[in-house]
């Protein structure tokens, strides 16, 4: 970026920041919502993080009945653990030794935010959105993940009212771990499907 472009970018940030404050203040004055409502929403979003998805995965690894409920109705299985997912439906995609799943939204940036919180920057990027449907194996390699040729890849483009989360493979060598220890191994990126779960964490 040259100096002028940097200045423009800074002006634009200030502009939209002011617009945010202005609209928030106007809508509070009009009684559409209160300042406390805004604070509550910010707090609620901060409380959503990939730990929720990780807990579902760890539970599914240990409890076959829970796993079948997760695969049948992801939203209900999330609510069972106390995680409200709202009106959008959660579909959990099971990785197997012969199928690897990965999620994207090529049209915008739909993401299971009710369960995992706000998406990482790269998930919203042109690079990821454009390429993962076209050359998924290459994109996964850029995340350090090599999928063997004989394993099928399924890319899930979230274009409408479903939201997706991956149920990754449980790594070998984790037989003695309890639910909490297992959940700690499950990363956000493995729930998106760009990495695998590593027994070393």
């Amino acid at each position: 970026m040259n100096r002028q472009q940097e200045q423009d970018a800074q002006d634009s940030r200030g502009y939209y920041r002011r617009m945010q404050s202005a609209i928030e203040e106007l809508l509070i004055l009009k009684g559409v919502f209160s300042g406390a409502d805004v604070e509550r929403e910010v707090k609620a979003m901060d409380s959503r993080d990939p730990g929720r998805g990780a807990k579902m995965v760890a539970r599914a690894w240990l409890d076959p009945d829970y796993k079948s409920r997760v695969l049948k109705d992801g939203s209900a299985a999330a609510e069972e653990l106390g995680f409200a997912v709202g009106p959008l439906r959660l579909i959990v995609l099971e990785d197997t030794p012969s199928v690897h799943n990965v999620i994207v939204c090529t049209l915008c940036s739909c993401y299971p935010r009710m369960l995992l919180g706000l998406p990482p920057e790269w998930y919203k990027s042109r690079d990821y959105r454009s390429r993962v449907v076209r050359e998924p194996r290459k994109v996964l390699q850029e995340f350090g993940t090599r999928i063997p040729d004989e394993v099928e890849i399924r890319v899930h483009d979230s274009t409408a009212d479903m939201r997706y989360m991956v149920l990754p493979l449980r790594p070998a060598g984790t037989e003695r771990l309890d639910e909490e220890q297992l959940a700690q191994l499950v990363t956000r990126d493995s729930l998106i499907g760009v990495t695998m779960v590593d027994a070393q964490g």
């Binding site: 449907v133 998924p136 194996r137 040729d149 004989e150 394993v151 099928e152 890849i153 399924r154 890319v155 899930h156 483009d157 979230s158 274009t159 409408a160 009212d161 479903m162």
Partner: peptide, 11 residues
């Protein structure tokens, strides 16, 4: 890639 590689889309 693998002949079974697929993309699933809501339509």
């Amino acid at each position: 890639g693998n002949a079974g590689d697929a993309v699933e889309i809501e339509i």
